[in-house]
Nucleic acid binder design. Structure first.
Length: 802
DNA sequence: TCCCTACCGTGATG
DNA sequence: GTACATCACGGTAGGGA
């Protein structure tokens, strides 16, 4: 038979000592299909220079090797001798095919350090990655599959064990040229429990939301139940019903928010205690958790996607959200906030409380579902571009994405893939210390009018391409060769693709094109960090350091040119330069920009970022020197851009942040400090009269390590300890919220109060440590001393004397 | 007890 | 364990007077 097929989930299994790949996806009619494909595991042996003529001799020796492990015998099936490239150099290499991928490492070890052999490679690449790379069966792309329907007994009963209509043994899989697009069946879920510690409490309810499915399952009764609620006798039968509903819905993707770290492990623990099966997978089995910082919950035949992880690793840089809570992220991305539920009500639930809780639980799944739909184009594009399955692509960090992109594209350069660093190697790399980074211009504090901002487009990526900076182009003398390497070449390709898709998007906007252009942009931006990352296969500290160095050289040059043209430089950071427009017209500025570009090396490109009406730069606290990375700009559309100020820092209280942002706004709009001063006075008055609500005084700081590991105990650590004492579990990553109350202790941390603790806020603290420091340097630009304003003393302003 | 400073820790910029 | 360096700043902790 021959049919259209899109692979969604990849897995592999052993049969009679050999590896097979199990693809699960949909056919053209939307039916879930399992396709079994063969795979010949292999790795490479690279011969030393001068030993090329020994190739067949070495290959013969290798052919006779075999290993036995866990009752599995792996032998060398065949060898091929080929001219390849390794680290950019021509080499003679032997491709060694073995019976089982898991043993490739052992066979490679047995080959050992023969004098003819330089390196053994690609045995450390995951089987699925190798399979996709070698057979070109790309995720979420349409293929024609030819093959035979499997009998129940084939491959040790594989087909019979799977809850899938059709299992096919493939004889041929080829990409379809003209078919694009695939709408997955997504199902979102969420659980509510009475303890946040996994396995400690009960699951009170489970919600599911998808197309045509809207349910809350619970064993907690209430008289008047909403139509979407189903009551079950106990936790165990509720879980069994959940499994049943998932199986009936037959999703491609089961998604939750922080479900790797909470919902799925909780369900697993609860099903265990209740003695019921959590048979979510098409194999009837429960989720399997892979170890890691956060375990990854894998379900056979259904891609379990924890949206939080993808957002955290890839998407968060686009977000304004200060935390990655479902509430905040959904609020920003789908304009829908979760319903509120006060968990303190849990202690004493009445009928109506349960109704609210059900609704809250359902809303979590609804919001998760909408969020999944919203970022789906981005997930898909990443998966297609880096050619890794959904499961991995939604969990990998940026360095892994860059690396996977490299691995899957190295065949274009006939390159054998470099190995991962060994443990000791990573340590050595880390120990090599820091190198000099970006250049930052020290601004002179002041309020400026009519500013121009230039910036280099994708500066670090452009530098890597222009100067050919990479591991394989680094010469022994420390310079980088003129012969262009695969890393810069690939990066150039990424940059060009990004440009192309950005243009296409501008012409014909679609979620897919936006996502595609974004994905390329992210990959380009991450390429620099990748080369400096200790865990990278193509780590090259020299290349990373040179990237920063050449970038610095370029921005300094550009600053020089702009200065020489008699413009006054106001600020610059890494790849951007702000200067005064002076008496020049916008046209003249643009012509000037073009002229600068004509002389830039390689693909370096300086761009107009924007024109600004006003810009404010302040001094560092307690000093005359200008503060870097702190400024506020007003553009011609009256939009304000604030960088670095307390306003944008989440560890300052709302009162401070709101006041400061309003002060900046007023000053930028008015061009003077007069009205801004009134705002300050009003806040000072309210604070002194205790008219400020505690909610505006909460300080939020993230706990970033276990409590025991702190050398210095800051207020947030002491607040966290207080929480523990009150029986609230805390863990790294949590945002600790507290306010400062009155008290005799000098140490501020001794006066922290948790939100629900009633106390009098410390007026002095909020005045001297929050409000005044945040506006002091701003008013200082106008010669106004905020301390005396706060004291209600005379207002001194330079203006008074002029 | 006050004052100074080094260091710790967080969160920002690009 | 999970891209890089640069920067601002509050707060603690400890020494010296």
């Amino acid at each position: 038979m021959r049919f259209e097929f899109v692979p969604v989930d990849y897995d592999y299994f052993d049969f009679e000592g050999r590896n097979y790949v199990k693809l699960i996806g949909r056919n053209g009619k939307g039916k879930k299909i399992c396709v079994v494909d063969s795979y010949e595991p292999n790795f490479w042996v690279v011969l030393k220079n001068g030993f090329e003529d020994k190739a067949s001799e070495v290959a013969d020796k290798i052919s006779k090797l075999e290993t036995e492990k866990a009752g599995r015998k792996t032998t060398v099936l065949k060898t091929e001798i080929l001219g390849k490239k390794f680290l950019g150099k021509k080499v003679k290499a032997i491709r060694v095919f073995v019976t089982n991928h898991k043993d490739a490492h052992d066979i490679a070890s047995e080959i050992g350090d023969m004098e003819e052999i330089k390196s053994r490679r690609e045995y450390d690449i995951p089987l699925i990655t190798k399979y996709i790379k070698e057979k070109g069966v790309n995720p979420l792309s349409w293929h024609f599959v030819e093959g035979e329907v499997l009998d129940v007994g084939d491959y040790g009963g594989l087909a019979g064990a799977l809850n899938i209509d059709v299992c096919v043994g493939a004889t041929k899989i080829e990409p379809m040229k003209n078919k694009e697009g695939f709408e997955p069946k997504i199902l979102a879920y969420d659980i509510e429990t009475d303890s946040t510690e996994i396995g400690k409490g009960d699951i009170l309810m489970i919600s599911l939301y998808g197309e045509g499915l809207k349910k809350v399952l619970t064993w907690k009764k209430c008289k008047e139940k909403p139509e979407y609620v189903e009551f079950w006798g106990d936790e165990g039968s509720m879980i069994e019903r959940f499994v049943e509903l998932v199986n009936e819905y037959d999703p491609d993707v089961l998604t939750g928010y922080f479900s790797d770290g909470f919902d799925l492990p909780y369900l697993k623990a609860a099903s265990h205690t209740n003695g019921v099966k959590l048979g979510l997978g098409v194999d009837g089995k429960g989720p399997v958790f892979a170890r890691g910082r956060i375990p990854s919950g894998k379900i056979s035949g259904i891609v379990h996607v924890d949206l939080y992880r993808f957002i955290d690793a890839v998407f968060s840089q686009y977000l304004q959200s200060e935390t990655l809570s479902l509430n905040e992220v959904a609020g920003e991305l789908v304009g829908e906030r979760k319903e509120d539920f006060d968990f303190k009500r849990l202690a004493n639930m009445k009928d109506n409380d349960w109704k609210d809780f059900f609704s809250y639980n359902l809303q979590d799944s609804v919001v998760t579902y909408k969020l999944a739909r919203k970022i789906w184009p981005d997930v898909v594009e990443f998966s297609k571009i880096v050619r890794e399955p959904l499961f991995d692509v939604t969990r990998d960090r940026m360095s892994a994405h860059v690396e996977n992109y490299l691995i899957h594209n190295l065949d274009n350069y006939n390159e054998i893939v470099e190995k991962r660093p060994m443990y000791g190697e990573s340590e050595e790399r880390k120990a090599r210390g820091k190198y000099e980074g970006a250049y930052v211009f020290e601004p002179t504090p002041g309020l400026y009018e009519n500013l121009v901002m230039f910036d280099f487009t994708s500066m670090y990526a452009s530098v890597i391409v222009t100067y050919n900076l990479s591991k394989t182009t680094l010469e022994e003398n420390g310079n980088f060769s003129k012969d262009v390497g695969f890393f810069p070449t690939m990066l150039l390709d990424i940059i060009e693709k990004r440009k192309k898709h950005k243009k296409e998007f501008a012409k014909n906007p679609s979620g897919m094109l936006r996502a595609r252009s974004n994905a390329y942009k992210l990959l380009a931006n991450a390429a620099y960090g990748y080369q400096g990352f200790f865990g990278a296969r193509y780590y090259c500290r020299e290349a990373a350091a040179a990237t920063a160095r050449f970038a610095k050289e370029n921005i300094l040059n550009a600053i020089g040119i702009i200065k020489d043209a008699d413009y006054k430089i106001i600020y610059g950071d890494t790849d951007s330069i702000a200067f005064l427009q002076g008496d020049k017209s916008k046209d003249e500025i643009l012509k000037f920009l073009k002229k600068i570009n004509d002389d830039l090396p390689g693909i370096m490109e300086l761009d107009l970022e924007d024109f600004y009406v006003r810009g404010l730069f302040v001094s560092k606290r307690g000093s005359e020197t200008g503060a870097k990375k702190k400024y506020a700009l007003l553009d011609e559309k009256n939009k304000i851009k604030i960088r670095g100020f307390e306003t944008v820092r989440r560890d300052w209280c709302k009162l401070t942040r709101n006041l400061q942002s309003e002060v900046l706004k007023k000053i930028l709009e008015d061009g003077n400090e007069e009205n801004a001063l009134k705002l300050l006075k009003e806040v000072v008055r309210k604070l002194n009269n205790r008219e400020v609500g505690l909610h505006d005084l909460m300080i939020r700081t993230q706990l970033r390590r276990p409590l025991g590991e702190y050398v210095a105990e800051g207020p947030h650590v002491l607040a966290a300890k207080k929480m523990v004492a009150q029986g609230v579990p805390v863990n790294p990553g949590m945002l600790i919220e507290y306010y400062i109350g009155e008290g005799s202790s000098k140490r501020i941390g001794d006066r922290v109060y948790l939100p629900e603790e009633k106390s009098k806020y410390d007026i002095k603290y909020y005045m001297n440590n929050q409000i005044l420091p945040a506006v002091e340097n701003i008013f200082d630009v106008f010669g106004v001393d905020v301390k005396s304003v706060a004291d209600g003393k005379r207002q001194t302003s330079l203006g008074d004397f002029l």
